[in-house]
């Protein structure tokens, strides 16, 4: 057993350190790459003595690449952690962050902003508000005789999601096909292209949401035993669900409102985590946060450097992530799922 001479606490410490350090490394690394070629030394100098580099360099590093990488990291972490949380709450491995209608709600909000208010800051505001509204509606739609059970909540989410998706179609139908419709289409493909520091306001709800799920991570295991058993084990199921769903909703809504819908991450990153370290949410939640952040920063980097024009990140996530996921599935033989 102890061939390697590495003890369990040591392995644990290394893992925890890696979880913290990796996203930072990815964000830092992404500052050195981009369409505007910058020597490594200039980027470093821009950090140490911003006054002594050309303005263009300073702007590229501080105003463009850094906020973008930070936003990507938080969005990736948010989507992955909420996916993991929803999978446990609904005891369903097929669930992703959009299960309670968040994405469709946000999509509708964005459409309304683009069609009625010409986009801009309204897009972020309305998509955030409608994402939250969709989840609240799902909760009430699934409420039967003063109780919302897990299964009726999924039903509620599906129905409300479909409702908002129909509303999105309505908005697309009435949108101006030359100016507004392309904006809507691009929003749905996801992008970090226009991120600046003002958008980082969304980091507040994202951090709060991630923190709520992180603090509830062990209870997620208990919740996934089903309402009845969880209650018999001593869990206040309603309160715990409220905290977890509230946290997951908050960070997903904030993520989607600045990046557009990126559906793939919330489903697959938690599963990659499950294959790597198992299903215990105590480990899975931090691993999902870290993996999600790294993955999204990498994808954003690729989306802005691979070709002359930016590739929408939603497309890239699915195109690159899917083969990687299949590879992992084969390699880990399904991670105990079979």
């Amino acid at each position: 057993m102890k061939r390697t001479g590495i003890t369990k606490p040591m392995r644990r410490a290394v893992l925890i350190a890696a979880l913290f350090v990796l996203p930072v490394v990815f964000v830092a690394a992404s500052l050195f790459f981009g369409r505007y070629p910058l020597p490594v030394r200039d980027v470093l100098t821009a950090f140490i003595r911003p006054g002594s580099v050309p303005l263009a360099t300073k702007v590229a590093v501080w105003q463009l690449r850094l906020p973008r990488a930070l936003a990507a990291a938080f969005v990736g972490a948010s989507l992955a952690v909420s996916g993991a949380a929803f999978q446990s709450v609904f005891r369903n491995p097929l669930v992703n962050s959009g299960i309670l209608g968040v994405s469709n709600g946000a999509g509708f909000g964005a459409c309304v902003a683009i069609v009625c208010f010409g986009g801009g800051v309204w897009t972020y505001l309305l998509s955030f508000v409608f994402a939250l509204a969709a989840v609240v509606l799902s909760w009430f739609a699934g409420r039967i005789s003063r109780v919302t059970t897990t299964i009726t909540m999924i039903l509620g989410g599906t129905i409300v999601g479909a409702f908002f998706s129909a509303l999105v179609s309505v908005m697309k139908y009435i949108a101006d096909p030359y100016s507004q419709l392309p904006s809507i289409t691009f929003w749905f493909m996801g992008s970090f292209a226009s991120i600046g520091y003002s958008h980082l306001l969304a980091l507040i709800p994202m951090t709060l949401g991630i923190l709520l799920v992180f603090l509830s991570r062990w209870r997620l295991n208990v919740l996934s035993m089903g309402d009845r058993e969880a209650a018999a084990l001593g869990l206040d199921v309603r309160r715990c669900q409220f905290l977890v769903i509230g946290g997951a909703t908050l960070c997903t809504a904030a993520a989607v409102c600045i990046s557009g819908t990126i559906g793939w991450v919330g489903l697959v990153i938690p599963h990659i985590g499950r294959m790597l370290i198992g299903n215990n949410n105590q480990k899975l939640v931090p691993v999902s946060i870290s993996l999600g952040a790294c993955f999204m920063v990498l994808m954003d980097l690729l989306s802005r450097t691979l070709t002359g024009a930016e590739i929408p990140i939603g497309i890239l996530c699915a195109l690159i992530g899917t083969p990687f996921f299949v590879y992992l599935l084969k390699k880990t033989r399904g991670g105990n799922w079979t």
């Binding site: 005891r91 209870r219 996934s224 089903g226």
Partner: peptide
């Protein structure tokens, strides 16, 4: 539910 290890399931008794 999810394929937790037996130890993880028994630990839930401490909720």
């Amino acid at each position: 539910s999810f394929p937790y290890t037996v130890r993880e399931v028994v630990l839930m008794g401490r909720t």
